[in-house]
Amino acid sequence: MKAGVVVFPGSNCDHDCYHVLKHVIGAETVFLWHKDTDLQGVDLVVFPGGFSYGDYLRCGAIAKFSPIVSEVIKFAENGGHVLGICNGFQVLTESGLLPGALMRNRGLKFKCEYVNLRVDNSDTPYTNMYADGEVIRIPIAHADGNYYIDEEGMKELEENNQIVFRYCDDNGTAEDDSNPNGSLGNIAGIINKKGNVLGMMPHPERCAEGIMETRDGYFLFESIAKFIGGCK
């Protein structure tokens, strides 16, 4: 697997993603500059967390007009794998690669904390190392993670099993008191219908090594690396 991490002005988790992919997973990894149009033959594109274009207008709204994103949209339409984390998830919804929108947190605060996630779909290229219903702990760090979609869209997400992660309590119950931001249905991460584009608000790259509080994020990267193959 060759991975590319997109760098927008204001990205700040790009090096974390690069580190995990290159040094922990052992994948050939390159940075992809936002003004570039050459994806350098990567198999996986990662939109990292941060504040692309200063979060001006809306989070991710300006990024969708950058040269690299137009290329990534074509890449995804041709079946290429795209992972969006935090601001990357916002870029994916703004650019139409994933349905719905991410709004200001219900409590209006920037939330930076570990949360429990329930894996609701382990049958994706990104979650095949987890088990269905497994509770994992991955940190969030965002002010705009409040997932919204209209009723019809929600029905479609559920029917196609596109909801991959939900915020939950220690027992895996996804109810309002374990919802950090007001997301509909406690949604923390979704995948597109085709199954090649995943967006999530929590940061798996921040907990992918033994020295971290958990190592639960590692398995997301290992899942996609194994799915695409050719690492280590």
């Binding site: 207008l57 809306r58 007009f65 919804t93 929108a101 709004m103 979609i149």
Partner: peptide
């Protein structure tokens, strides 16, 4: 396409 996010 830009100023408003027509979903919300």
């Amino acid at each position: 396409t830009m100023l408003a996010n027509m979903i919300i």
